[in-house]
Design a protein around this nucleic acid. Structure first.
Length: 253
DNA sequence: CTTAACGTTTGGTCCGTAAC
DNA sequence: GTTACGGACCAAACGTTAAG
């Protein structure tokens, strides 16, 4: 589903009205006609105004417009349209407290490329800012409460792009637990099933003591977490689409 | 353990549509 | 024109919950 299939961005249109439009076969902006069931002059004007703005935003590749217009629960709909400027990222730290603890590694995955910045090596204000420069949409797991504030306290960066947090998104489908638990639920494979966040803290300390291979293992874990979010997100989106869109209409999208 | 961002719930209001 | 109804939206309070 792309943003051109969505009408919930128009003022006064929620999921109920949107579904009514879809059921009438109006499944794309260009199929919209003011003369349809449940839509009078006022709504027609608002929908047309949303479509106009949306078209402009698409021309300029602006995710922000849709992030503003869509209700919070529909943010997952941004992904397919803005896939190539979506940045999945995950951080490892020495603990949960962003006042006391420090960031050890940051992995970013965008448009098929994965890169990891490491404390004491190439993790700096500048490299971090540069790494996020092309990101129009951020995807994390619980990053709204953890990764973003942690990075913003620790570095001179502000991550104010639209942000899709997988945790509440998964919850819409009744998927709860951490990323690992949800992966198991969805059948996503892991190379390092025995590493978790606490182990990542230990691995960093081992690395500081000079233990061979500890950093490599930490990085591998961080990258796996990050890259696996792609699969999880795509699986979840497929489910959510099937849910908001009745089976018999799906081919019309 | 400690947060704080979400969703949900509740209750109420406002507004647009369509039927009369 | 008038009115009834459904749906959108708002605000506040509340509960849930996973990050290393």
């Amino acid at each position: 589903m792309h943003v051109e299939n969505c009408f919930v961005g128009a003022d006064g249109v929620g999921e109920t009205l949107e579904r009514r439009l879809w059921r009438q076969g109006i499944t794309r902006w260009d199929a919209f006609t003011p003369a349809c069931d449940g839509i009078g002059d006022t709504r027609a004007e608002r929908i047309e105004s949303f479509i106009d703005g949306g078209q402009r935003a698409l021309d300029r590749d602006e995710v922000e417009y849709f992030d503003r217009q869509f209700p919070g629960g529909a943010r997952w709909r941004l992904y397919e349209t803005f896939r190539e400027q979506t940045c999945f990222f995950d951080i490892e730290t020495t603990g949960l407290d962003h006042q006391r603890n420090v960031v050890t590694t940051v992995t970013l995955h965008q448009d098929g490329d994965t890169r990891t910045l490491v404390r004491g090596d190439d993790l700096t204000d500048e490299t971090l800012a540069a790494a996020f420069a092309d990101a129009g949409l951020l995807v994390t797991f619980n990053g709204a409460r953890f990764d973003v504030p942690f990075l913003e306290t620790s570095f001179d960066v502000s991550l104010d792009q639209p942000h899709l947090d997988l945790m509440p998104t998964c919850r819409k489908l009744g998927l709860s637990g951490g990323l690992g638990a949800i992966e198991r639920e969805l059948g996503v494979e892991r190379d390092l099933p025995d590493v978790d966040g606490r182990e990542a803290v230990r691995l960093w300390h081992e690395h500081e003591r000079g233990v061979d291979g500890a950093l490599e293992r930490l990085i591998a874990y961080n990258r796996e977490d990050t890259v696996n979010m792609v699969t999880v997100l795509e699986d979840v989106i497929a489910e959510l689409e099937a849910e908001v869109f009745p089976e018999e209409h799906q081919q019309r999208l």
